[in-house]
Write a protein that binds this DNA or RNA. Sequence first.
RNA 1: GGGCGCGUAGCUCAGUCGGACAGAGCGUCGGACUUCUAAUCCGAUGGUCGCGGGUUCGAAUCCCGUCGCGCUCGCCA
Length: 584
Amino acid sequence: MFRAFRSEVENAVEAALDALDLPTDDLGVEEPPEDVPATLASSVAFRLAGAVGAAPPAVAEDVADAVDIDDCEYVGRVDTQGPYVNFYVSDAYYADTLDAGRADDYGTLPPTDTSVVVEHTSANPTGPVHVGRARNPIFGDAVARVLEYAGNDVERHYYVNDAGRQVAVFTWAYETFEESDLPEPERDRADYDLVRYYRKGNEFLESAEGDVAEAAEAEIADIMQGLEAGDEETYERVAVVVDQVLGGMRTSLERLPAEFDRFVKESQFIRNGDAADVVQRLKDSEHAVYEEEAWQLDLSAFGLEKNLVFLRSDDTTLYTTRDLAHHEWKFENYDEAVTVLGEDHKLQAEQLEAALEILGNDTDTLRQTFYSWVNLPEGGMSTRKGTGVDLDDLLDESIRRAREEVEDRLGSRVRNDELDEDDIDRIAHQVGIGAVRYDIVSKQPTKGITFEWERALDFEAQSAPYVQYVHARCCGIEGEAAAAGIDASTDVSVLDTDAERDLLRDIARFPAVIEEAAEDLEPHVVATFAREFAETFNTFYRECSVLNAADEDVAAARLGLVQASRHTVANALDALGIEAPESM
RNA sequence: GGGCGCGUAGCUCAGUCGGACAGAGCGUCGGACUUCUAAUCCGAUGGUCGCGGGUUCGAAUCCCGUCGCGCUCGCCA
């Protein structure tokens, strides 16, 4: 309802300014501070004071008088407070909010008929997913979910690097070194198993000199040439490594869960000739230069100082070259493309966008969004060097601590619903994984995060369990109410306390929060909303009992409010990829 | 050194397309369970919004400068 209310307010202000012969380019519609009872306000009087020749409060009066809300359904009243014109919601606003909240998909926006491909994670298939990378699937999956809630037709893609130098090194190492020379794997799974060869290979290359180094490099170059030439046998050799490691990584990612509709291998753009086609078209462009035996793009016309090499002197393509073909494929098949990347890829992303324009693409449909790396107190994490915390270890530890919490609370539990072993297991997983996700997704992606165990696994702070608990409380009330024979109503006229009205106002805002998160690709606003909503609900919970309400009508309406609250909190959590427990 | 990002309470963070006295949680201190689940609630405490200028009726928010931290500047990805 908030979105409809806002639109009514904007139209009303614009019409009022028109009637007064004043400019309408900036309506100044904004949300007032919390202690102001209005739901929206306009600060337009400040700006018009000069032109009108009167003090802002007087102008505000004029505007308020000129505002006509007769046709408004959700604007109930207008007044002024100093220089501000304040807009209050109508009874219909509350009534329709409660009614809309009955739907279990509440918060979902109308279909946009737009297909959006969200590419995220796309980590090189070189080893287990570590926490430094884990921000990508958590943030990326939330972006995809939020876009879905906003009415888009979303596909999630993982772009698999199976054609670059790193996998060539990996393949060579896998075929060259003996298992007996390697340390024990940390887990019995392909990614943990094979990463040992990758680390060993890199170690070898760093220290090797002379003929030995040259021989190794020759073998690696041979693999890269084979890939470039479309040699089947080479693809098969590489795939042995890539598919196994990727399979292991998927197992980790699915625990979050971060699942994908499609794994797009970059080698396909070499094999189908698209990469070669891109190379030819770039060579023909006016920005192409041939320097030091390699083909490059001079991107100074796009404000980029560094040239982009798109064809090596040995005629092999680079990651970005193949990614150009990949993006043209996306443009052909989807209305919009969103890519979630680490901040270390910013320059490459700018070069990609410029090159796509040179190739004649409209890049307005491409949005590349970035997140800062998660570092350890002692520095960065690296698969190659083997430094960092594995995502599996973080999730295991989080679940373990969550289970401890559940077991600790069993004794002091008021509710007599007898949690069995399966319930404890379920809650430990929901809370443990939810806490990790919330910790990551609730922060602005541009801000750096230093990983610290105790902070990431703090269940007391502004965290997933706090929000999840509200959902469990809603489920508990609904269960008790059903047993007591109470049927929910949508009669808001008996919901007149501050706590009830505040809760309705928060429920009403939820779709607008989804809209904002999708527009800005910032799921953390949903996390902030969920936390604030939980606070509002907990106040309601304390002050407004459903089972012990003064009369049946109030009990029924409050039960309706609890249902709408449950849908709101469940879907806010779902948009973040966090499970909503029915009991805790 | 150039480019990009970040800097808000002791700590972790919201707020940043200019607007009403800068908000939470944690911590500290003090309260609330015979009540629909206390993983909860209520109160107190705590801030030169890195620093210095500028624009404006109004700046945490925009501009310039400066300091600190991160990323980046490969024929790696």
